[in-house]
């Protein structure tokens, strides 16, 4: 003890004690918050790296959904012969939203490898990697709203005041995407085929959700499939303010919020309970 007396005693030092365990769900949340700078850096890195060596750069993000939309509009308006007024706006709104969800969740599943390499060598709360996947998705969603706006203006479609509701629908969608991402990340760190399986699943899910078609074309006896699909409520919550110029009904809003909250809570809880075991897998 004499040696400690010789040194200036510092009481402000952080103490890590493996035996003292708090409530994990709160512990991980605190850790994530204190590493928010890393989330920011990872998002920046991802975006910079993606566009640094491409000629079109950031415009590609905006151009890609537009080209995609043109192709699909041609195909589906001919094929389905639907009576959807201003189909390009209808479709693009849905598909941007879907792209956000699909991109975010599958990149979270993909993050597992990369994050293992990092988290094996330095302490970093693993939720940082999921958060950065969500962050990248949000940036891309924000960028893809530009071509949507261009399309709306170009086709003479009105810009409703209900666009102002978008932050709320995006928040709900983010919570849902984050929840699914956490679940996928946890599964994918255990099994390497989860990502491939999910990519197939997400493809099917896309067609089960009214993105290219209108929900009214679903025959009544198959409606339950829509009602059981959380993405149905989420996409409607996102699309209504842009396409219909109305706020989502309280029932719709309640359904999408409920799905988002439940999935996020389940994902976060599951992730936090498994987070210690990640380091044991090499």
């Amino acid at each position: 003890m004499s040696s400690t007396a010789a040194l200036p005693t510092r009481t402000d030092l952080p103490v890590y004690d493996s035996a003292r365990r708090g409530w994990r769900v709160a512990e991980e949340a605190r850790a994530l918050w204190s590493y928010r700078a890393l989330v920011y850096e990872l998002v920046i890195r991802d975006i910079k790296v993606r566009y640094k060596r491409s000629v079109l750069g950031i415009f590609w993000t905006m151009l890609a959904p537009l080209l995609n939309m043109i192709a699909l509009t041609l195909v589906f308006s001919a094929l389905l012969r639907q009576q959807i007024e201003n189909y390009p706006v209808y479709f693009l709104t849905g598909s941007l939203f879907w792209a956000f969800f699909a991109q975010t969740t599958s990149s979270a599943a993909l993050q597992t490898q990369d994050s293992n390499e990092t988290a094996k060598r330095i302490y970093v709360p693993r939720s940082v990697f999921v958060a950065s996947a969500v962050g990248v998705g949000l940036v891309n969603l924000g960028l893809s709203l530009v071509p949507l706006l261009v399309l709306v203006v170009a086709t003479g479609f009105p810009i409703y005041a209900t666009w102002l509701f978008l932050p709320v629908s995006i928040l709900i969608a983010t919570a849902f995407a984050a929840g699914v991402s956490l679940l996928l990340f946890t599964f994918a760190s255990r099994f390497s085929d989860v990502r491939e399986m999910y990519l197939v699943l997400v493809q099917t899910w896309f067609f089960l959700t009214p993105i290219v078609y209108h929900p009214s074309i679903v025959p009544p006896r198959y409606r339950f499939a829509l009602w059981a699909n959380p993405m149905y409520y989420l996409v409607q919550t996102f699309r209504k303010p842009i396409y219909d110029g109305v706020l989502p009904s309280p029932g719709l809003l309640a359904a999408s919020t409920a799905f988002a909250v439940v999935v996020l809570a389940t994902g976060w809880n599951y992730f936090c309970r498994r987070v210690d075991s990640f380091a044991y897998r090499t």
């Binding site: 030092l13 952080p14 103490v15 890590y16 004690d17 493996s18 035996a19 390499e117 990092t118 988290a119 094996k120 060598r121 330095i122 302490y123 210690d276 380091a279 044991y280």
Partner: peptide
């Protein structure tokens, strides 16, 4: 890794007082 709190011990207890920093391996 235990000291860097990357890994939690299966048994026993690890106490670390102060901020740790690893000298990052090449390329991390």
């Amino acid at each position: 890794r235990l000291i860097a709190r990357i890994l939690r011990p299966t048994e026993g207890r690890v106490v670390v007082v102060g901020k740790t920093a690893p000298l990052l391996e090449l390329g991390l």
